[in-house]
Design a protein around this nucleic acid. Structure first.
Lengths: 215, 215, 215, 215
DNA sequence: GATGAATGAGATTTCATTCAT
DNA sequence: TATGAATGAAATCTCATTCAT
């Protein structure tokens, strides 16, 4: 999005070119199954240039993740600062941000989910601190709501954040795996429903005050 | 643990030995980062024997996944057949089964989650049908509840299943990543809370019948 | 020379094969200029087998050097133990051993001199302790002779060893570089002359009572 | 140190800068282990400038060697022309020149010895003619002495030169390898002793005319 | 002269898989 | 069954050299 720092205006930022190529190659073939030359070819640059800009293939993925995840952290922080919004509103905005991220950059999000977020032995472990930061910010939204009485007090913010983020990531996985269609309607519906499911719960409420169906 | 089918009684089942060794090696180093010789060493058998029992390194992981995932499908089917239990009860039992699976075989579950369930380019894709089968069974529990009015009708079973399974898998990830402690209390608490969160929702309900707090 | 430890008698010791091939390839093209595949080709084995037996290309050279240099150390120790021989005799035997080593295995000695003995940044440094051990053994021969009065006392054994070994290594270099012919006569002459030069000195001894000899 | 031939007076001679940087980099890391960029960094110039002044990395080493070795040849020629000096005096002066060369420019001499003089497959071979020229000049000093009777006639000048030069180069190696300390006293002592060892021999001479100790 | 991004051939090393015993 | 030596394709990474500016 931003141009390289000190480059001639009409010159192409090759570093950016490589990063963008890597997104698509990693998404298509997977980090382990693709070769560095695949990335170079996709970017239309020479093999060695990849190593001019990055120490290793891993550094490319690290860069991709760090750039994008920071955007999400910033977004959650900014969402949380909105004094006018309820906790449910805030969670809706968080869900929207993540789902829109996928809508606009599905390959990048795919790479992050498939290669980083669940990679407990490699990248996930390496970026654990940053990953947790996002969870904690979501947890804080819930904890604030528990304090003001709008959310149940018996589910901790940390736990709620896991459920909430896990549900969203699973939705993204479903799109990634082509289990459900990727239409604008689906994306919008998903935003509302995931918040409704997590905040309002799956259970029907007409029973309230009347006969409860089950324990 | 179980003896091989047609084997001398005092002989060790080397195939099982290799599978069990693979669980721990895959969990510890990751499928891609470990070598076939690591598995053979861990099992205490010769290098070539691995190839006597399995066509390839991938087949080992396939076997591990298929064995275990089928158990889960069977369990969900059996849970769903209990006529006496409510949908919430059934979901509690499903959550219990998955969490107990992790409690008793954390390495195996780690391998499944880390290497298969989110591996959109390799194993996840290969086993997609089986993976979806589990989701659909959970979805069916929800759909039945929607039909009998105990669950909201506006959240489809498919969608609800995603939220529910995603939340649980995220909890397992938190244990895998050592984000939260692995104690028996935690496991039991998690079972209840995840069901409460997904079925009952995060929002407090004192308002019910009265003025809703926020949009 | 010795066969591999536990091998079938008619089987070829591939490890030895690789070492011998490496001697010739390193001698012909130089350690840095040759590829591991050159060694494998020369040995007639597959590429990967080299790495089955050796950790790296460097380990091959290390092995070659260590094997051979130890033989020399053993030889010098054994020469030094001969009670009947004078210091000059002992130095003659040392010179003979080294020169004969070159005569019988010129490529191996070439590799050691060219790639190890003077390689102050790489192999020479790595094997410095072993290299010095040989120098010290030669120095001890001289020191013993100084003590019994047969050698001048003002040139330390350490210093003398440097001159002696340096002179011999230079002779080998001359053969390696094809500066002087490699004939049996040359080798035998060199043995005597190097000892005569170092022990007796270059200067004529007309002072010695009478007529300058010459011719 | 010396300014470039046709340069603006206040401009730095970048070519010289590169050569001097190369001396230290080659000495520190070895010719093969260092990169052209190491040389450029050490010189504080841009990468590409190295290729403006030199055709290749090898040409830098060639230049370094040729410059220095010619100085030595010139020195030996000039030493040999001194009609007043004996052969021993001349050899002392040659030894002095080489040892002082090391004393004043140890890195340069290290590079020459480590990378050229014994490099039988690469640089040594390429510069063999020049290298031999030095040996021959030393040999000539000896041959003249044989002719006038001051040196033994049975050791050829060529052979004696090998012993003499080899001894000195070994001394330099000992300094390079930190086997012996590099003090001014050591350097001066070495000059005398190497000449004494080679010209006078190691053997004590009181026996002359009397009882010879050994055969 | 001076810069450093760009190139790409080639080297080492890894390791899944085969196979003779 | 069981062994582990043997194979060789392929991957990552290095770095001398070129070249546009």
């Amino acid at each position: 999005m931003a141009a390289g720092p000190s480059r001639a205006p009409n010159s192409v930022d090759k570093r950016r070119l490589i990063l963008d190529a890597a997104i698509h190659v990693f998404a298509r073939k997977g980090f382990h199954s693709c070769r560095v030359s695949d990335v170079a070819d996709e970017a239309g640059v020479a093999y060695g240039l990849v190593y001019h800009y990055f120490q290793s293939k891993e550094e490319i993925l690290d860069t991709l993740f760090t750039e994008r995840w920071q955007l999400m952290i910033d977004a959650i922080v900014s969402i949380d600062q909105r004094r006018d919004a309820s906790a449910r509103d805030k969670l809706y905005m968080v869900a929207s941000f993540i789902i829109d991220s996928y809508r606009h950059e599905p390959d990048l999000m795919k790479v992050i989910i498939v290669e980083v977020t669940r990679a407990a032995n490699t990248f996930g472990l390496r970026h654990l601190t940053k990953i947790r930061e996002a969870y904690e910010l979501i947890g804080k939204i819930v904890d604030d709501a528990r304090r003001d009485g709008s959310f149940k007090s018996d589910i901790s913010g940390e736990f709620a954040a896991m459920c909430f983020y896990g549900a969203i990531e699973q939705l993204l996985s479903a799109w990634i795996f082509d289990i459900v269609p990727e239409t604008d309607e689906e994306f919008e519906r998903a935003k509302s429903l995931v918040v409704e499911a997590i905040c309002g719960g799956l259970e029907a409420e007409p029973s309230r005050g009347l006969e409860p169906v089950s324990g």
